[in-house]
Design a protein around this nucleic acid. Structure first.
Lengths: 387, 387
DNA sequence: TTGTAGGCGTTATCAA
DNA sequence: TTGATAACGCCTACAA
């Protein structure tokens, strides 16, 4: 039976037409619908018929249902997008992010889906790129105000959107951490050790920031905090509050990026003063420009940079300076050093996000999930000097 | 005009139908084709008509062309798959891989495409998962024999396949490195320093390996090498050759994974002997079980583990032991140590792969590309003890 | 157990 | 400049 080349509507890029289910059906002498049932192993098909179809498929070199056509028909394509604010190199330089993605990919994979990486950093309009890509759902990693604006368009397309670490209150289910409690625990730990001069290295408040000292009282700071991602806001506000409660002073420096080098740079700012002093109301002002004796970094990556800065200056950790991080990732420190940090279930965060996606795709309206962290005391924090 | 709900052929998961271009066309009182032209800014449309269409689209909340439908029609969907042998956490724990992916994503992005991550580690059949996903092209990271088998099916679907670091001779364009020359350079550097007892820590020869000593003469080793990924094979064979040429002894230990911990474990095997001696023909057999004075790891990640193993044993680097890596990634070593290593253009490798993809998609048959590396001498290699 | 019909949403072609 | 038509390739309700 001749397979005459059908007059095609559009332009054909390649001269050889791909084998379709219709071809297989024709070769097997059955209807397309029967061929579909046979190929998919669905529905009732006489064994003989099935065999005929399958062997036709084999001999024609049929490569299975076209994913695009099938997806269009079914309304699902097995793709979950991950919307990243950064280039891959930056996002993936954070083991926390990698852990999250790993959990996400794994759990999403059990549902038969795969991850599509969509960095918003490119030159092209983020919105257009996102709109043109096939996806059933999108996971946005805690994002700034600009990224939040993309959500309505996705919803309009029927794309499920789930947030990781934020944004809260944007009408999407979110999985996040007890950042406030974690920050509070870090302050308590260090205050108990007698520290009264704190430094905090915050994560970048926006994607395009240059970092630098952060003056809490400055309205610009408040606004940037408000528009920034939730993690930064929650951890920073909690730090202000904890410092006030413990009656200690605290200086904030924003890192330009979540990179070791930037952590080092921010630490330098804290350690090499002078800095604008910004004691909170009711806090005793430390004498002179005395450097902080305890630095809390909002990520382990930044904390690592802080350790380097200390080393460069001949400061012993923790004798001269206590350093704490946030995340609990394995940083391969040498010499038996272990970072005091907040352990967060990075992979579980990803898995949970995947579950939220699955629930939403099946028509439910899942609630937010808050995961709990725990303080891990390592060797980088100790009594304040002179105690 | 009422938009009567059309009797739909399939099952509708959601009760609310999405707004389609046909809806917009109807509302604007034009044909679907005209609406398409207007919305896409293509073709000649009267300004008034365009405006009418666009405003109809706006007021109906049209979210733009359905990517799936458009892709089906156009035959391109803007997705480039990255086929990974590992889970994300393992693959991304290697900065080299991250650099490659970053370059790939960036360059692919300029062509308007995004990366789809497809780990083959899952429980489901790799082939099926791959076959069901929408993609224009697939980039396979240097892979073992099993992964090579997936290529024909992709080609049958009309998917362009490009290899990174391998597999050579599989009928796909490949971008790789001058691994042999690089390995030779490392041996020459260390032999010049007077080393005669070498250890080599190889990358895992297969995804499911448990690692351990590798006996070159063993036929099983040869077979595993032959079936493994190209990088491992090329670097290992070149090491054998270089050792023979320099008349030095060499022991090989295979790491179970490309992880710092596994590098440490492999190094322990080399340093703590006794090991099966396997001098190459013509190589002087080292007296007793003397440990190697120089270790070459096939990745910086493994080399880092090796440094840790040395530290644990009180071996000074490079006084007691020289260590060299491969990749040239930034590992954030403390104390001013810089690893002697082979610098490879990881990001450029990804970019090149993207260019091969673009060329192949435009109907060309691009040639393989070989990128060049360069030896970077750091502080971890020095004269052999007693020289 | 099999076939028919219809449509998923879009866009290229071609004629008007 | 616009519109009718025909695919893109598949799947499913329903009839036979």
């Amino acid at each position: 039976m001749a397979t005459e080349a059908p007059a095609t509507g559009g332009t054909r890029r390649d001269r050889t037409r791909r084998v379709t289910l219709a071809d297989v059906a024709r070769a097997a002498g059955v209807s397309a619908s029967t061929a579909s049932l046979a190929v998919n192993g669905a529905g009732p098909v006489a064994p003989a018929t099935r065999e005929r179809v399958l062997s036709a498929a084999r001999s024609l070199g049929y490569s299975g249902p076209n994913p695009l056509a099938r997806s269009l028909r079914r309304g699902r394509c097995g793709v979950v997008a991950v919307v990243l604010g950064e280039r891959l190199a930056y996002a993936f330089s954070d083991p926390m992010m990698v852990g999250m993605l790993d959990g996400l990919a794994d759990e999403v994979g059990t549902a038969g889906s795969s991850l599509l990486l969509v960095p918003l950093s490119g030159p092209t309009g983020a919105a257009e790129r996102l709109a043109a890509l096939p996806m059933d759902a999108a996971v946005v990693d805690d994002c700034d105000a600009a990224t939040v604006d993309l959500i309505p368009a996705l919803h309009a397309r029927g794309v499920v959107v789930v947030g990781v670490d934020g944004p809260q209150g944007s009408g999407i289910p979110v999985v996040d951490l007890d950042d406030e409690a974690a920050t509070t625990a870090l302050f308590a730990h260090l205050a108990d050790l007698g520290h009264t001069r704190f430094g905090v290295i915050t994560l970048p408040l926006a994607l395009d920031t240059v970092g630098g000292p952060l003056v809490p009282a400055d309205p610009a700071t408040r606004e940037r905090l408000a528009k920034g991602a939730g993690v930064q806001r929650r951890r920073t506000l909690a730090a202000e509050e904890a410092a006030a409660r413990h009656g200690v002073s605290v200086r904030f420096v924003e890192a330009a990026r979540n990179l070791v080098d930037e952590g080092e740079r921010a630490a330098a700012t804290l350690l090499d003063g002078p800095l604008p002093e910004s004691p909170l109301p009711g806090c005793p002002r430390p004498a002179g420009d005395a450097r902080p004796t305890a630095i809390i970094a909002q990520s382990d990556v930044l904390a690592l940079g802080c350790l380097r800065a200390a080393g460069t200056r001949g400061l012993r950790v923790p004798e001269d300076l206590s350093v704490a991080g946030f995340d609990g990732v394995d940083l391969h420190l040498f010499d038996g050093t272990t970072l005091t940090t907040i352990e967060q279930p990075a992979s579980e965060k990803g898995r949970t996000a995947a579950r939220l996606v699955a629930a939403a795709l099946s028509g439910q309206q899942p609630d937010d999930v808050r995961l709990t962290t725990r303080l891990r005391v390592g060797t980088t924090t100790g009594p304040a000097p002179g105690r």
